[in-house]
């Protein structure tokens, strides 16, 4: 059952105090079901307390721990050593921060910058629909909800943004998705405002249907499908 792996982690590091970046190699033994966040903690505990990294919920619910392992953007709290070895067919891993924002230190990036795009699309209801005549909640049928419920599962981990071919002048897959959610939400009235954002130069035209977003999304959201549906004008 309990197998140990000899791992080599090549970690991208950056020290803001002296503005130096370098690659640091850590070798460690790890059990098969340690997660990558556990490995970082282990490095902190046993080898190098200065390595900075981020996580919060540590079970794939908050999207704090996005990172690139061998180039693939993923949640480091969800990746078990065993699975990583199987997936990448190696015990040597390059560990890099996501490319979506400037690096603060080591694996920690200035996520606030990245979040600006999500703020820009106004992830709330801009103009609420009038109440149902009989009061209480809006009535939304399960089928209506089903059309977009998958898109509401996004946790803004920015893995998709890091994977996308378009890195500039683009809102990014998750922000476009957030906009689409409210376009499909029957409670939102400000549809035209949202359309204008959606089809603007920083919106859908920047998406080249590379589908890397869908490929890497840890929540397995088919983002490309939603964006393509938006291009089709088929958000129903």
């Amino acid at each position: 059952m309990s197998q140990e792996y000899d791992l080599t982690l090549k970690v991208s590091r950056y020290n803001p105090d002296i503005r130096r970046s370098w690659i640091q190699v850590y070798r460690l033994k790890a059990g098969r079901i340690l997660r990558f966040v556990d490995l970082f903690q282990k490095i902190n505990d046993e080898q190098d307390s200065t390595l900075a990294w981020r996580s919060s919920c540590e079970h794939g619910q908050c999207g704090t721990c996005g990172i690139r392992i061998n180039g693939k953007p993923l949640l480091s709290c969800e990746l078990l050593v065993e699975d990583a070895v199987r997936l990448f067919k190696t015990q040597t891993f390059t560990v890099e921060p996501l490319t979506v924002a400037p690096v603060t230190r080591d694996l920690v990036i200035d996520m606030e910058k990245a979040y600006e795009q999500v703020h820009f699309v106004k992830p709330y209801i801009i103009q609420p629909a009038p109440e149902h005549p009989e009061g209480d909640e809006y009535r939304i049928s399960p089928r209506e909800l089903e059309a977009y419920v998958e898109a509401t599962r996004c946790i803004n981990c920015f893995c998709c943004v890091a994977a996308c071919v378009t890195q500039k002048n683009y809102l990014g897959p998750n922000a476009v998705l957030a906009n689409i959610v409210r376009l499909m939400d029957p409670r939102e009235m400000a549809k035209q405002e949202r359309m204008d954002i959606l089809y603007s130069e920083q919106g859908t035209p920047r998406c080249r249907t590379a589908r890397a977003c869908s490929f890497v999304c840890p929540k397995e959201i088919d983002i490309a499908h939603f964006i393509a549906s938006a291009k089709e004008g088929n958000l129903k």
Binding site: R68, N70, G71, K72, P73, L87, F88, A163, V165, R208, T209, A210, R211, A212, S214, F215, V216, A224
Partner: peptide
């Protein structure tokens, strides 16, 4: 295969298209 593994075929094809 680095990109296929990390971004999928669609990503490669987009680049190839460009």
């Amino acid at each position: 295969s680095y990109y296929v593994g990390s971004r999928g075929w669609g990503f490669i094809l987009t680049w190839a298209h460009r």
